[in-house]
Amino acid sequence: MFVQYLIRRALGGFAVVLLATFFVFIFIRIAGDPAALIVGGTGENITINPQRVEQVRQELGLDKPLIVQFFTFLSGLVTGGLGNSYVTGRPIADELSVRLPLTIEIAFLSEFVAWIIALPLGLFSALRRGRFTEGLTRVFFFIASAIPAYWLGLLVLIAVLLIFGWRPPLGLVPPTQNLAVHLQQIALPVVVLGFVLAAGLVRFIRNAVLEVLQEPFIQVARAKGLAESTVVFRHVLRNAFAPTLAFSGLRVGFLLGGVVIVETTFNLPGLGLFFVDAVARRDFPVIQIAVLILGTSFVIINLLTDIVCSLLDPRLRERG
């Protein structure tokens, strides 16, 4: 049954995320003593007071066995107590409630922009096969997939500044406070990331459409006299859509990596910047939570694309 298949996938997915978190958890604790880091900072030559280290270790429960620590961490996830940042001492949950919405917003809008760029381009180049369209998608694909998002971001900032004398307003404003300013701040990173993401998408859409065009049912649709636009929108697009959606689901990791990069480039205080700062300061609880969130979103989004795909294409429902 399809429902059973989905449940199995969901369980498997969460097992994967749990294992990933567990590995990060163990890895961190094997590599060094977080308590010594908190007391001594990250400097090399600071003398560390062993008593103080022991005290911190007890405060954080680091003196308990690893397995106990891991389950304490897990139960914290269920009850919402995610622990405190080693560096700022603030509860991680508070930080996340501010940062996560921004990251989700950037990720969704970027993916949306990518589809807006890729869908017409991929469709067009598949429907009008020829040297020109082929060259066009080829050039777009290679350029967009070679430009690192951080460099493109800086280039766009320079270009906008030199041409229009405009730069995004500093200090992020939430959308509830002033939507116009918020959109100005978010527009450039979203467009940059969307452009980079569109690269693979264009190529995939083009191939998916070409493949569907060779199906017999397209020939039937044409033979029974449907207008070409109906053939394309009702039959070709619908059938090419499901694999493309699954493809972009699998590329969520790429999307989230891109979000980390544009958040840093444009200095937007989302989850990505939180993570980067945490790595730079070796703020392990934050790193752990960030990895967990990124992994979970990968699993959830792939489950969702799976469900949507099978709704679109009944043939996919039979597996499992």
Partner: peptide
């Protein structure tokens, strides 16, 4: 395959960052 799934569920840049954070 499970090992691969674990690493692919996390963005590659983040995987690399975690290694750097620890080592």
């Amino acid at each position: 395959q499970r090992g691969v799934e674990i690493i692919t569920a996390i963005p590659s840049l983040v995987v690399a960052s975690v290694v750097v954070a620890v080592l």
